[in-house]
Design a binder for these strands. Structure first.
Lengths: 100, 100
DNA sequence: TCGCTATATACGGCATTGCCGTAGTAAGTT
DNA sequence: AACTTACTACGGCAATGCCGTATATAGCGA
């Protein structure tokens, strides 16, 4: 088995764990931070390359790579941000526009 | 010297480094991810306790603590998200609203 | 077919953060 | 004094962030 395959399985299991914990609702009021995010899909909808996507919304290219390759899971804050990018990409652009 | 003080110095130096690098402009087009963020200030403007702030925007309370205490620097994605929270908090709320 | 370029995959590797928990301090309330 | 709320302080491990580089893969023009 390749290392990459192993990684996918490992991440997959962590995913499952996160999913279960995430859907357990805990005691969170209103907001819900998704346990998993399909970065590739979000990016595809915006029609950007990994590099453009990273530069447009401020991500590190290496992070986008790791996320899409299933090597790492975007962490909490990144997941929230990705959700905002998905729902209201312009808001993120505005927040990052110079002179802020 | 207390450990806390040491930490502040250490983080301060990292700050300086980040600041220099950040202002170096690199080759970034348009967007600019701030090297430093005053989390406490952003939260204060929203008039929320650390706990409410964390729950409202999806952050982990422990992360907010670490950031405000100068123990850790919010990383890139978190900094971007914090900027969005600062500029358009409602957008983040909307993105996190259930059924998304 | 042979490059040339753009895009994405794969992955080594160290510094740093995320996030957990817990204890302690300060101030306001009953 | 005892209780509550909000915050500071910090130990500690797992995991990610982010760096760099090497390797596909595909489209395109010469």
């Amino acid at each position: 088995m390749t290392k990459s395959a192993f990684n996918k399985i490992r991440v997959g299991l962590e995913d499952a764990k996160a999913f279960v914990e995430g859907s357990a609702d805990k005691r969170s009021f209103g907001v819900h931070v998704p346990a998993r995010i399909n970065v590739k899909k979000i990016r595809a909808r915006l029609g950007l390359s990994q590099e453009s996507f990273a530069q447009t919304y401020g991500f590190a290219l290496s992070a986008v790579r790791d996320w899409e390759q299933g090597r790492r899971q975007p962490e909490r804050s990144a997941r929230i941000l990705l959700k905002v990018v998905e729902k209201e990409p312009e808001a993120v652009k505005r927040a990052l526009a110079k002179a802020g």
